[in-house]
Nucleic acid binder design. Sequence first.
DNA 1: GCGCAACGATAACAATTGTTAAGAAATAAA
DNA 2: TTTATTTCTTAACAATTGTTATCGTTGCGC
Lengths: 171, 171
Amino acid sequence: MTALIDEKLLTLKRLAPKTILVHEGSISDEMIFIIKGCIRAWYNAEGQDITLQFFFEGDSVTSLESFLKNIPSTINIETLEECEVGILKKSNFSGLIKTDSEFKELFYETAIDKLLIHHNRLLSLLKDKPFHRYQQLLTEKPGIFQRIPQHYIASYLGITPVSLGRIRNRK
Amino acid sequence: MTALIDEKLLTLKRLAPKTILVHEGSISDEMIFIIKGCIRAWYNAEGQDITLQFFFEGDSVTSLESFLKNIPSTINIETLEECEVGILKKSNFSGLIKTDSEFKELFYETAIDKLLIHHNRLLSLLKDKPFHRYQQLLTEKPGIFQRIPQHYIASYLGITPVSLGRIRNRK
DNA sequence: GCGCAACGATAACAATTGTTAAGAAATAAA
DNA sequence: TTTATTTCTTAACAATTGTTATCGTTGCGC
């Protein structure tokens, strides 16, 4: 999707690990494109940190509801490792949507793709046991345990770190 | 959303309970608008019936991936009770998207709204125990147990009918 | 290089959910 | 009205996951 964006509209930045990009309660006015690195979205459930999603190179990242509807975000977004990103300001985004029909088309296609990703994740949570979800994750992202702390992965899978340890030791 | 659709483009139909509207493996070329009744989307996991979503009056229903991308649907959609629906054929839908920018805008807004609904459902599955999900469902749809068999509701919540029975008896 | 923080592993016990089976109640069909 | 099917409830046992606690390892910061 960045191929359609004039380089002048993207602000390049290098971010340290644990940099907060979106904070719950704040309105998000940036869309981030990951050039290099890893980012996660998480939800604060009364002090409990629930990991919702991981993003890698080539992904676009934002709190969509906050970004599009100008309401406070319910989620947090932060870097897991040092990242190189391109940042698209909301004002530039809105300009592109108005003037560049190809960009608008691609944005909506991307939104539909994200819907299908969420749908599949939802489906997996309903039909698969934690062990099977763990296996699927390994199949899709073989190197994930080298990049991401396993307690975040456990949270993403919907289980505790202790349970993930048991699952990993299962044969 | 139907307010923007010329009545001539909607085919009105009355459907019996257990009518299959979308079948896994088939390409879906209709978008259904519920005037009256209840419909559910479900996934066949090797013979296991997983209920994904319920739709009620005012909702639009389709297998989005199949409808938009012309690929076989992975889900099934069927009526739970006698329904009155309006059906919009894919060809009419495409015509509206091309010619009616207001309709197109609204369709994409609706798609974003569906994304947020999926996001919230995903979040609930990750952070809430079945009992809490059950309570949320009662809060959001108080009369749901009068309209839908409890074994479908159990499936939707991600638990077995036996577990749902235990939860309902918990005080 | 040392101290601290973060990460990871494991055990024991508790709680919850799944599975299987049986039977009652409600609904649908003949 | 009767029969068949579907839905619902419950018990007993099995399996899985959560909780709490402890300790070892690795990585970070000074």
